[in-house]
Design a binder for these strands. Structure first.
Lengths: 106, 106
DNA sequence: ATTATTATTGGTTATATTGCCAAATGACAA
DNA sequence: TTGTCATTTGGCAATATAACCAATAATAAT
């Protein structure tokens, strides 16, 4: 494999790794609806501030979200628009699997 | 969050986790082209047979691929067709990022 | 039947990830 | 300046992951 292909593959698996944690996937899906500040995630998740901040920073490193300091707060929003279609695609896939399982049972 | 939503979210992050390892992502991309038997992956990756087998079994557990024993060999093939568009989507995203970086440098 | 081939499973060790706490930073407010 | 609020960073303990080797299973070939 050529070097730039390898690099792209590693970047892509870093993106998947960022989405691989339930909390981070939840965060991304929240940001698909609207921007949010860190404290809103803290409140909704009952996780420590530091934990939330680290999850967000990991998503940012993967270039999936971006941030923006306004007043006292740091606001995060979606950067990778393609996540919307990716999540939609996988939702359909999971629904199809569930339907298969339901039919197998009957 | 409702229970079935939570379950779906966990299943989805399991899918992302399965794709998060460079070797497994490579495997999926190979299977996007054609079915392959375990020994072909072993040969191409220079990894141990057991390592390859475990990676494949993880992808199978995530319902992304399926297998089929024929003769001496176990053949794996893609099950989740949506992976094709997902990978394509992310390739475009990464290319766009790279272009941005190139423009920032100039 | 015996042996060879292909793949999976179990066990171990090294490394990575996650979560919390405590401490540091940065911006606004008094 | 001093203090306060929102966030980030560093450090630590618990848990999860990945790689290899060895042992086992299943099937094909002799």
């Amino acid at each position: 494999m050529k070097a730039f292909e390898k690099k792209q593959q590693d970047e892509m698996s870093a993106i998947f790794k960022a989405l691989a944690h339930p909390t981070r996937l939840w965060m991304v899906r929240e940001l698909m609806r609207n921007e949010r500040c860190v404290c809103e995630f803290v409140e909704a998740s009952h996780l420590d501030f530091s934990t939330v901040s680290k999850h967000l920073s990991l998503l940012k490193q993967a270039h999936l979200i971006e941030d923006d300091k306004r007043g006292k707060n740091v606001y995060y929003r979606l950067r990778a628009v393609c996540l919307v279609s990716i999540v939609g695609c996988l939702e359909d896939h999971l629904k199809a699997l569930q339907k298969e399982r339901a039919e197998d049972r009957s």
